[in-house]
Write a protein that binds this DNA or RNA. Structure first.
Lengths: 220, 220, 220, 220
DNA sequence: GATGAATGAGTGTTCATTCAT
DNA sequence: TATGAATGAACACTCATTCAT
């Protein structure tokens, strides 16, 4: 019944992980993202998140407060990750048409390879953005993106490849729509149309179609 | 132990409704649609559905089997309602450009006025269309719609207002994307952009923008 | 919605059975016996009994009162049926040893072919004979049986084939034990011994063994 | 909302028991055995078991899985307890006749003092040994018992006190029948014969009668 | 007499969260 | 810091019984 613990704190070979709060936190967030994405906020199970993260449930509450706060943390991380990768595109160095095409393709492909992003956003909208409204960070992420689109639009107009009169927010919404919807509804659409929309060929053709939609919309 | 019933026999507005199975069934489906749309499949509460429908919970199980079967019934009804209203547009009698614009506007406005449709579809996709796959009816609803789009496209090509080479399914996906995404993500987008995208003015402007996107895409 | 009923009461070809209360009652009792025997009093479902009997549930309550009264009715019927068949043996005309052997074999075989008898008795004992105590009829059934055993014993003692000093109730309990236990516990015993005790060969050998036990017990 | 705890920390008789999983498990099993024995599997209430065990219902599911697994655990424990006590008899050191008499008496008395054993077995047979079939442990308990009976039989035959030609399994079934039936049906039998079969005098006389039955059966 | 829709009190089971160790 | 046993409130689902028609 008595348990003697011979491990020395700091020893990396400890069977029980100790004093690695940052790693524990990251593991929890990764596990939470997977669980929330797979089952939604209501369907996700705190026990399952703790098990996936291989941490004790108590830690989860210690680090994040409660399930809802953990949800917000996962949501913020999803937004940040998306925008971070988007920034890496370095669209500013491209030609206006190439830049717009790259933005469209990135949005489409990111949605394809990050279903958790779509799932978290859909569920957050189910809750009328209740949790996102508490976030101070996410709103700031969109300002640089809209600036970038504005710059591309202005540059394209000057060089005559884009028409004038297109609002950057309108354009962003159009790009986002085309990128998001296909994967948000891929399971119902595949079922209804009787074919798998997730194959590489389908996705690739669809991406180019949507690039075409955008460029025709912007054409003078 | 004694139960006093103050209702008058024969009065149709009795608080306790009896012997009206069809009405009970309809009430359950209406209540279920509202509850599922508001909270998702996992978040919805059977007790709450029964209370909203003003029926005994037992009836719900008698008529629909279980929560999941009720979910599928609500989902099927949502699809059918959408396609039924769409058919009432009578697009076939319009000019090709008017018809396409009407389809785009209808999709956008239906999503606007039927948030439950979006919510149910999103949640069904969270479950990878598990329940929709059991449905025999929904798949049949899309065939007439695609025929209609094909006819409009062909007619527009013959009269020179549309270019050739546009696939009907691609076009449908584009229309659906633009109609769906805006309202699917309206809460997060409103939060991020700091303004209410749900106002009449916003919606109206957005609808015309998306009609423009579609017509430019189809233009020769 | 309106339903016109053209059937005349008394017509035997009615789709809906009418005015056959005795048959309905018998059907209910048969169905109840099967359901109670299969699942016990607590596990049996009134809905299932009504469905098996092909009658409306309301009839069941009309004829029998409630589930517990129906249980007692089934229990009484089981006892009566057993003793009725036993009387048909006409043991009184046999020699003492043949008569005792016949009683033993009958008990064993009746338990074999009427598992519902065992099941109902076991369940009634689970309830500490709570329902049987309300019965006025069952107690009377045993008096003739004990008289019969007494007569056989006396006759056998006079003719020298049985020893004296054997109490009729003791003997009855011994016979009943050997007949009952094997089939009451046939599933657990078959599982533990790894062989099916329900085969015709097993049963037949066992019956003769138990006849032997009884006759050796009675032998001078 | 506020919760007042009047218990003194450190006192071992705390009303709220904590951190004693083994004791909790044992308490659950004890409570389950009592509840199952009193009401059968279908009639037993998980709530009641939790209340009797003075544990939270959740623990019951944590430790045993579900009601049916708990049933099997109680059933296995009942078998093991019976065979464990039987082994303590140390029959092997007795004379053959004394040994057989001791086995018969033990079986009879164990059934008398452990009505839960009979009740659990009866209910398991109602379910056609569905749960016992999943058990790997119970089958092993019977092998030593049959060996013991075989040894006693052989020894008694060599010393001339038993006849030959008696099968150990047949003998075991006879002993078990005589021990089991009387108590399995004690309530219905007491009701029918109009006297309490559970008195010390009745039981004692009955035990000796059944010992007599066995010894006469084995006599040369 | 006969129907089956309707009911309220429960039934087994699960959950997010807390607390003694 | 870390553990996992413990909790109470709910959850989906079921039941014997009643009642309007």
């Amino acid at each position: 019944m008595t348990r003697v613990n011979h491990t020395t704190p700091g020893k990396s070979s400890d069977r029980v992980r100790r004093r690695e709060p940052e790693r524990s936190k990251r593991d929890i967030l990764t596990a939470a993202t997977a669980e929330f994405a797979a089952k939604g906020l209501a369907g996700a199970r705190v026990d399952q998140i703790a098990k996936r993260a291989r941490i004790n449930k108590r830690m989860l509450y210690q680090y994040f407060g409660d399930k809802e706060a953990l949800w917000l943390a996962a949501l913020e991380a999803a937004y940040e990750n998306m925008r971070r990768e988007e920034r890496l595109l370095d669209v500013a160095t491209m030609s206006p048409r190439e830049g717009m095409a790259a933005l469209m393709r990135f949005n489409f492909e990111y949605c394809s390879s990050h279903p958790e992003f779509i799932s978290l956003l859909n569920n957050e909208n189910l809750h009328k953005a209740k949790y996102l409204k508490r976030s101070k960070r996410v709103r700031e992420l969109y300002s640089p993106l809209l600036s970038l689109i504005s710059d591309l639009l202005a540059q394209g107009q000057r060089s005559g490849v884009f028409r004038s009169g297109v609002d950057p927010v309108d354009l962003y919404l159009t790009i986002a729509s085309l990128g998001y919807f296909y994967f948000s509804n891929i399971h119902t659409l595949s079922t209804i149309f009787g074919r798998d929309l997730g194959t590489r060929a389908s996705r690739s053709a669809q991406a180019e179609l949507f690039v075409d939609v955008i460029l025709r919309f912007l054409a003078p």
